[in-house]
């Protein structure tokens, strides 16, 4: 169990690292494009397409598993905080079951779409032809691992009486405490 947990966390971090690289690449390429067309009158061909179909897609979908591990998704815990232990356990079971269903159907469909995109060699045409099918795979990876992570968390809810989402996480915590330290 602990080994699986570590493996999933490492994989999630790896995907988030890839998303971070997308962000850095987006920043650098857009700036380079702005400089190139202002100074050299020669923009970098395909910038808008690469930003949209690779960097954006990577930055949005790849961090999903880590976001789940860190309990960063947006939820309303007003009633949760008022509920009894049993009520809270039931809510968590329901929430994580729903989450597994949600990420699984998205992983399944986006996986099929990605395979179809390879088969037809999906491409967009700007000043240059940009193949875009590889970026399609960010979706099944992100959704798929998020589903597996949700399954792990569901197992923890079933097995560990006192465990709550995000409790061992001291990183995604309050931004103020960190910066004023």
């Amino acid at each position: 169990m602990i080994a699986i947990e570590h493996l999933l966390e490492r994989l999630s971090r790896l995907l988030t690292l890839a998303a971070s690289l997308c962000l850095v690449a987006m920043m650098i390429q857009v700036c380079a494009d702005v400089i190139a067309y202002n100074l050299l009158r020669a923009p970098i061909p395909g910038t808008a397409e690469i930003v949209a179909y690779y960097y954006m897609v990577g930055a949005c979908f790849l961090p999903l598993p880590l976001a789940e591990l860190r309990n960063s998704n947006i939820h309303v815990d007003l009633f949760y905080n008022m509920a009894s232990w049993l009520g809270r356990r039931s809510m968590l079971l329901l929430a994580y079951t729903a989450q597994i269903a949600f990420f699984s159907i998205l992983a399944y469909q986006s996986g099929i779409d990605a395979l179809e995109a390879i088969a037809k060699g999906e491409v967009v045409f700007g000043r240059i032809a940009v193949p875009i099918w590889p970026g399609r795979f960010f979706l099944p990876f992100g959704f798929g691992l998020a589903a597996v992570v949700s399954l792990l968390l569901l197992t923890k809810i079933c097995l560990q009486r006192d465990w709550e989402p995000g409790m061992e996480d001291n990183e995604g915590d309050s931004p103020i405490s960190k910066e004023t330290r």
């Binding site: 067309y37 009158r41 020669a42 923009p43 910038t47 808008a48 397409e49 045409f125 700007g126 000043r127």
Partner: peptide, 25 residues
């Protein structure tokens, strides 16, 4: 020459290149 033109089709992009304009998305 050197004008930045928002183009709407691949043919228009090719034309912009032909007249040394810069096509932008």
């Amino acid at each position: 020459e050197g004008k930045r033109i928002r183009t709407g089709s691949s043919s228009q992009i090719k034309w912009a290149e032909h007249v040394n304009a810069i096509s932008v998305s």
